[in-house]
């Protein structure tokens, strides 16, 4: 295997609160290879966005990284000074967020925002930066890019804005793009366009992608590997096909079964009883045990570690070795 581009080891993120410290992320480890698309799925509160924020050093205080390491291409980045981290963001790690409006400054033209980003990270003249910006906009599918570059963000529709954000994220040729729910705010017919664009353009430039989403369908189409988070812990990690079709963790299986599909009409959906625990009430042992239909005594006392269940495929479940890989 090649050396990973991004390596996250035992990441722990804590939020101190009045009722004690909440662990939003508890011992999460994964790698992303150069050019790879890693999907990160989980329900709201599972910690997927916090993982992204922790990697780029943007955890909102009073939250903090309480343990673990983040390595980018051999350099440890979680301990970098804020100034050095700012240079990593944008230059080496690009970001695409859910709401394109919050990632664009409404007071500046697209041209100014793009050229500023380009010139901060690359040694280019104003004129060259603008040329590059136009080329980027053209590449992300903005019609008449040379003219529209002088427009303000509010002149663009939602889908076009997200295209601009993708151009912005890629402006400095980053090695990794973190996309946090990039299509959630968009209409169904536009979602597909944006996902395809993101995938294509990153592949073209050799940038790896960490795609954070709650939408399994998006992951299925886009990602090479997928990480399933539950209550701040990694439940399963493996190639997207294996995880979707042969999940080892009961939570992943339940999650897959609960999604209604177009192809075959089930009378009832598989449902996981209950809801994900709040961070202040994570049960002892496996965090999923109260909702798990297969839980054994061990699950209630001892927390299972993520361990290999198949090539490149790991799950955090005591039963994972014996369990028949179930079909969806």
């Amino acid at each position: 295997m090649t050396t990973p581009l991004l390596s996250v080891r035992d990441l722990v993120v804590e939020f101190p609160s009045r009722r004690g410290t909440l662990r939003a992320l508890d011992g999460v480890s994964f790698d992303i290879a150069p050019g790879e698309v890693l999907g990160m799925v989980g329900e709201s509160g599972a910690g997927k966005s916090i993982t992204g924020a922790a990697i780029i050093g943007l955890i909102e205080p009073p939250g903090r990284i309480a343990g673990g390491e983040v390595w980018l291409d051999g350099t440890r980045i979680d301990t970098l000074a804020p100034e050095a981290m700012r240079r990593v963001r944008g230059k080496r790690i690009g970001m695409v967020f859910q709401d394109p409006l919050t990632s664009l400054n409404p007071l500046y033209t697209i041209a100014r925002q793009l050229t500023e980003t380009i010139r901060t990270h690359l040694d280019l003249s104003e004129k060259d930066a603008r040329l590059r910006a136009v080329a980027l906009l053209d590449r992300v599918g903005i019609p008449a890019a040379a003219r529209r570059i002088d427009d303000y963000p509010h002149h663009f529709s939602g889908g076009m804005r997200q295209r601009v954000v993708i151009a912005l994220a890629l402006a400095a040729e980053p090695e990794l793009v973190i996309a946090d729910e990039p299509t959630t705010a968009l209409d169904v017919s536009v979602q597909a366009q944006i996902i395809d664009l993101l995938k294509e353009i990153c592949a073209e430039r050799g940038a790896a992608v960490m795609l954070i989403t709650h939408d399994m369908g998006v992951i299925a189409e886009t990602a090479d590997r997928v990480a399933v988070l539950y209550a701040g812990r990694m439940a399963e990690l493996g190639p997207v096909r294996d995880v979707i079709l042969h999940a080892h963790h009961p939570y992943t299986r339940g999650l897959m079964g609960s999604i209604p599909t177009l192809d075959h009409a089930a009378d009832r959906l598989v449902q996981i009883p209950g809801a994900m625990p709040r961070l202040d009430a994570i049960p002892q042992g496996c965090a999923f045990n109260p909702r798990c239909t297969q839980a054994i005594a061990r699950c209630r006392v001892e927390r299972p570690a993520l361990r290999p269940v198949a090539p490149n495929h790991a799950a955090a479940c005591w039963l994972a070795d014996d369990a028949e890989p179930a079909h969806g």
Binding site: Q191, A192, Q193, D196, D215, M216
Partner: peptide
Amino acid sequence: RMLLDAVPDLALSGRRRKQVSGEI
């Protein structure tokens, strides 16, 4: 037809969804 094509394929049947052009 376009809406149906835009739905992601979860069954990994290899059905390639078609690009849908334009916005509302």
